[in-house]
Design a protein around this nucleic acid. Sequence first.
DNA 1: GTCTATAGTGCGATAGAC
DNA 2: GTCTATCGCACTATAGAC
Lengths: 228, 228
Amino acid sequence: MNYNDFRKLKIISNEDICRNIFNENSQSIKIKKEERAVKNLLNIYNATLKLSSEKGFSAMSLRNLCRETGLSMGALYSYFSTKEDLLNIIRKQSQHLISKVMLEMIERTEAIQEKLRAAIKSHLYLSETMPEWFIFFFMETRTMKKEEQKKAIASELFTEKIFIDILEEGNKQKVFSVENPVLMASVIKPMLQDWYLKRWKYSRRKVSVDEYAVFVINFVEKFVMPTQ
Amino acid sequence: MNYNDFRKLKIISNEDICRNIFNENSQSIKIKKEERAVKNLLNIYNATLKLSSEKGFSAMSLRNLCRETGLSMGALYSYFSTKEDLLNIIRKQSQHLISKVMLEMIERTEAIQEKLRAAIKSHLYLSETMPEWFIFFFMETRTMKKEEQKKAIASELFTEKIFIDILEEGNKQKVFSVENPVLMASVIKPMLQDWYLKRWKYSRRKVSVDEYAVFVINFVEKFVMPTQ
DNA sequence: GTCTATAGTGCGATAGAC
DNA sequence: GTCTATCGCACTATAGAC
């Protein structure tokens, strides 16, 4: 599977995320008509990610957000109760959908080697599809309050666990030979994160997400496959 | 060389950085006595890195900084002219010293394989010595104005270039066999950055900087050394 | 060289008109 | 359901006392 195939699957969209936000926050959201609410939430969602991936969430004022969305302060506050609330809602829903997609993509494959490739690709492809959200999540974790931070850290460890499990299963099947699966998983993650954190670098050098995926997969496989 | 040896070298200190800040900004700094100025600058420097590595520079107010340093608003403004100015001064001086240290450490070695190891270790050891600064630099790049941002990006590319040069020289000497040195250098960098960005993870798992260095070096060498 | 006091701005949040 | 108007507060920055 390459990035084009992945996109055709239409496995995830910001609209799905906003519909979930609406359904799970129906009490705090003052707007009752689903279609209107989802439309505005999508507007707010996109604008928030855009503005805060530029300068950070705390540097984004709600007045910036008004300008970007075309909504008034009053209207914004019909969709969330505090600025911090907005951050938490976005974190929660997107995070949930992303783990789901990764697991689905891995489930589609059979062989353990394919699972490793699927895990790497799905993370890269997801971040290619919605880079602002990945940057947002990475950068804003430390600005969150303790309790929210814990959930963000749990999510980081969750995706890492996916890799650890695959590597350990590969060891068991004697397809892989990884001395330290935990440390191995630890260094795969930052390579995937670099794709969205330093996107400017790769686009400047005209490296496509597919090329990057192949490179990372080769790199990792050379280390995890038993030497002949 | 391990981390302990590196520390004993005392090759870099925050005081050196602050003394440079004083010397290179003698016009904008209103305090004229060097010893007093350096002492207070060090205080401000440490407090700024501490506070902004917690919640980000833009979320750190100058009132926070007063509390942390024990200085008043008026006193602070004798050392820099605007809040943004403070950010730029810190970026510039630390960045300069860090490239210098990396190059020095590499120069101490002879064989190209040792140079690769020295480059990896010096980056890891530096970030172990002054993690707040590395986090600060990584996180605040995007909050900077265009012109400052360019300098930060140039610095990222500069350390990457160090790796590219070593890999290409190794290819020439036929010690390495790296198909794509640029992409290889691109993925080494995030592995080094992970050490300070996710420090909580490694300390929780009781991985020392020396163990991490060995792992990264093995990982990279397995890929860059020609297969027998 | 450092302090306190304060000017001036922009923030998050809300009340009430429509 | 969305708007405008406005409150109270915290911010950066400065002026002037000591």
